[in-house]
Write a protein that binds this DNA or RNA. Structure first.
Lengths: 166, 166
DNA sequence: CACGATTAAATCGTGCACGAGTAAAATGGA
DNA sequence: TCCATTTTACTCGTGCACGATTTAATCGTG
């Protein structure tokens, strides 16, 4: 009925950055700030990764493999907090692109090992400039980024422990 | 080839929260911290919104309408940074749930006005406790949340201005 | 050895997000 | 007035994310 009823006792008022032009009516939702920041990152990555033919989640998987090759699907899922039903199709797409190969483990036939192909390894060169571009696009200094990351890690840890098995 | 080559001059070292158990190999990516926080929020909202039969993006749309009813699809898209191709099916699902109605504007036949149904308005009562639950699940104080939100707003603004039309 | 329980992975269905393309209404000059 | 342009919305195809279910391999314990 009424026009502006804010649940401000919960998530905080935070009317700081309300510019007249932008419709920031969900200012007091911290989750919305995270949601929007994630969308902004995705869109930035989309333009940067277009040359490589990768999506952002695919880039994360490739980054893991560039750092340490030969991982199981489960290991990748643990690192990215993703389930098999997300990863299996995604890794199959990377396989179709010729970047990774999926082979059953000899010792344990349940396990699928994901390894880089020559082409997948070579792609790392073309991706080397990306972290630098991202860091610059944030417009924040290294200490600021470090601090923000620490706060987000705390937030994420709290959210998982609270929502998971309370 | 080599085992650990970190692009740490760009996105910051940030080896602070590396616990032995959790596989945090993407620590130095600020984007990854945002990505993971967003996933954590989504999963928390999923459990909270299950009773209402809403998804998180649907909840955001409903929240906008609860604050001010009768919005065009464009207004909703501006508020959430979403395109028509995302919103049109989503709002049609809300319509199928009986929560909103979509009617063409009399003056401008291009415009579709989205308004709450009686049922949609009534749903606000059941959703009233959610912001409080979310705020508590973050485990952060109101000043901390306010500060974190301000930093994310800066980050998002920088990302958009840099990646958009440079 | 046998057999229930656990684990790794895959499949299916739903919904969000976006690029590309389409359609129709409204607008703005020449 | 007329027509190109803009605006609003929609459709289609692809990929991510997850709940629910399924399959196959391995483990554990009697």
């Amino acid at each position: 009925m009424s026009d502006h009823q804010n649940p401000r006792e919960s998530a905080g008022p935070a009317k700081a950055s309300a510019r007249p032009g932008s419709d920031t009516e969900l200012d007091d939702f911290i989750c919305f700030a995270v949601y929007e920041s994630n969308l902004a990152f995705n869109n930035l990555y989309r333009s940067l990764l277009g040359d490589l033919g990768l999506t952002y989640p695919q880039y994360l998987v490739m980054t893991l493999l560039w750092r340490r090759d030969r991982r199981t699907v489960r290991e990748i899922g643990d690192a990215l907090s993703l389930e098999y039903n997300t990863l299996t199709p995604m890794i199959k797409r990377l396989e179709a692109l010729g970047l990774v190969s999926r082979v059953r483990d000899e010792q344990d036939q349940r396990v699928v090992n994901v390894t880089l192909t020559t082409e997948g390894t070579a792609l790392q060169e073309k991706a080397r400039k990306i972290p630098q571009c991202i860091a610059e696009a944030t417009g924040l200094s290294v200490p600021e980024l470090k601090d923000l990351k620490a706060r987000l890690d705390t937030l994420r840890s709290n959210l998982r422990s609270g929502g998971g098995q309370e």
